[in-house]
Amino acid sequence: MEVQELKQLEAKAKEIRKMTIDSIGYLGVGHIGGALSVVEVLTVLYYRHMDVSPGDPKKKNRDKLVLSKGHAGPALYSVLADKGFFPKDWLHTLNKGGTNLPSHCDMNRTPGIDMSTGSLGQGISAAIGIALANRLDGVDQKVYLIIGDGESNEGQIWEGAMAAPHYKLNNLIAFTDYNKMQIDGYVHEIMNVEDLDAKWTAFGWFVQRVNGHDFQDMDMAIERAKKELYRPSMIILDTIKGKGAFFAERRLDNHNMNVDYETAKEACRLVDDF
């Protein structure tokens, strides 16, 4: 990646982070921790790798994303608004009655959302189904999938982990947002998921582990994943829950927290320096 593009992506991620903090702060409560830990991966996907059309969200041949940790929806909504899938002022309707931007991703309400998610563990299966449909139709585009580390406690994740390599789904590129925290505490204390690299490798995936806030690392990992001929890819992202918001970062209570709007605005001002 050229230095100029790297700088652009870094600047874009800051914008997305501010929009996300602002939309949750405007509402006053939300899943800020797990939304902010996926800002960089969403940015590198939507601004460098994914072929999507904001003017034609249902275009047949497009890259698709299943955000299986559906509670991170607000971060994805910031990206989709910025890309022009819908007006930016929708972001202030988050979770309000009648909104098109519900807490968890809804493909029937939000332009640009490719799969409804929210019940953890289910997105991997949906992504496998979409990848199989693409293969049947001779569609070359990729299916991207983001799961959580706490979500990896779910048995369905491992049913899917078994199925994707069985069907040799090299068109499926998955990420684990490994921010090390779940609702009740640290993942290693609540329900340890380690050794994640070894587990996914044993199931037959091409596994890479990179810094989930580093664009060069993620970009190279995605490029390598795209070259896989037979295996689905799992890119484990070491991330920080609540990344970039001074009131939330690394706090164990940041999964779904109250956010005072003045504090949120202050956090947005500080994003550039944080």
């Binding site: 799969m115 189904g129 199989l132 693409n134 369905q156």
Partner: peptide, 12 residues
């Protein structure tokens, strides 16, 4: 997983 994959196939 079967039913989830079926949903994904339908989404496709």
């Amino acid at each position: 997983n079967m039913v989830g994959v079926a949903a994904g196939l339908s989404a496709g």
